[in-house]
Write a protein that binds this DNA or RNA. Structure first.
Lengths: 138, 138
DNA sequence: CCCTTAATGAAGATTATTTTCACAGTCGTC
DNA sequence: GACGACTGTGAAAATAATCTTCATTAAGGG
């Protein structure tokens, strides 16, 4: 499925910058990229683009439900392609590596806690921080 | 116990700005304040201070273990006095009300997950979002 | 009190992100 | 396939949060 079609299905014109950015997101082995990361990869791929456009497009992708924006404790946002399944994140505070996980027990407990507090749970955000195996070994 | 003594016990000189900022944090009914919030309260209390000093002092307080800095998905940091007990937050997406909670089962699960992923867990951040009882009734 | 050293304030520097605005590109229409 | 309306883009300037620089001032020990 070409990116251009995917964009149109989400109500976005298939412009060159948008297609390229989507390609970068889909082809990256690292699932969480900052706007700057995306920008640098585009430039490295000989694609001329402005950083402002990257920010703009990523924000549009988020609004369109194509990507999810995360605010890790790093001072900047990171984006990942929206997948069907929810997951939480474990971030290496040294190299920035991100591992994804999902835990039904925690999810259930969260619902229970929200109910106990009288809240109607609509969303949650769980991030674990620590040193990844490689960084521990250093 | 006067604030000046509390500061000294944490290895910080008891300067006027630091004492005043600590007073603001201790007297506020709202537990989570941004640097800007603290600054505005100081000014409102007729205490002349520079915003840079507020940032500097809050960062020192964090390093000294006097306060904890949270990175909520709002674009700025918020600080709260460090208490003896760790807790997570449940935030009302409509009125901003914050409820604090702690759950040993979730904490244990987090440690387990981090270990499974090969990470050394150093910190975590769990925020639940939803509608508080009052806002649901609207 | 005085002196050494650390702390503060004001302004400028940084970093991340957004907005402005003139110009170029997309896409439905003919 | 060309036309035109309207949207999208790039460059640069604007914002927002936070930090750093540097000259001045204030803590606290002696």
């Amino acid at each position: 499925m070409p990116e251009s079609q995917e964009l149109k299905e989400h109500g976005l014109k298939a412009t060159f910058p948008r297609v390229k950015i989507l390609e970068i997101l889909e082809s990256s082995s690292v699932h969480h990229l900052s706007a700057e990361d995306v920008y640098k990869r585009l430039i490295a791929n000989e694609f001329e683009i402005g950083l402002a456009t990257v920010y703009r497009v990523l924000t549009q992708f988020e609004a369109a439900g194509l990507v999810i924006r995360h605010h890790f404790d790093e001072g900047h946002s990171v984006f990942e392609l929206a997948t069907d399944k929810h997951h939480d994140h474990m971030v290496c505070v040294r190299c920035g590596k991100v591992a994804e996980f999902h835990d039904d027990q925690i999810e259930a407990r969260q619902r229970q806690i929200a109910a106990n507090l009288g809240f109607e749970l609509t969303d949650h955000n769980l991030n674990l921080y620590g040193l990844c195996a490689r960084c521990q070994a250093r």
